[in-house]
């Protein structure tokens, strides 16, 4: 059930990237898609338990798997930096193309 929601988020983001014309909307869709991917890693990590894996006196409980969470932290940081780069690029483009419609920009910028 949870997995289905996660995949729905990923697909929503993906179709947003394909179908939206405005560049800022495309970037937001990409963010939605990457949120879906992050959520999928968290769902996979929580398959065998929900407890935070910290060594302590408590008796053995079902811990969540820390590896996917650690891995996805890297992907979140990379995603953030890529989005900021894209937004800077879009800011530069918006001076000459105020509507930021991708098909218009494509038309004026292909040989």
């Amino acid at each position: 059930m949870l997995e289905a929601f996660v995949f729905a988020t990923i697909l929503c983001g993906f179709f947003g990237i394909l179908l939206k014309k405005n560049l800022v909307m495309k970037i937001i869709s990409m963010d939605v898609m990457s949120t879906g991917v992050v959520a999928y890693y968290v769902v996979i990590a929580a398959r065998e338990g929900l407890f935070t894996p910290i060594a302590s006196e408590v008796e053995r409980v079902a811990y969540a798997d820390p590896v996917p969470q650690a891995v996805i932290l890297t992907a979140i940081v990379i995603g953030l930096s890529i989005q900021s780069l894209m937004l800077v690029g879009v800011m530069k483009l918006s001076r000459d193309n105020p509507t930021l419609e991708s098909n218009e920009i494509e038309k004026s910028n292909t040989p």
Binding site: I10, M30, V37, V67, L85, M86, G89, L93
Partner: peptide, 29 residues
């Protein structure tokens, strides 16, 4: 403008592809 647009296109395509790749990687995990 043209170089920024070409770069943005490249970044879009590669980032979306890498998101799919990440899903594949977690399936292997």
């Amino acid at each position: 403008d043209r170089s920024i647009w070409v770069g943005l296109r490249y970044l879009f395509v590669s980032n979306v592809a890498m998101l799919f790749y990440l899903v594949g990687a977690v399936l292997v995990y």
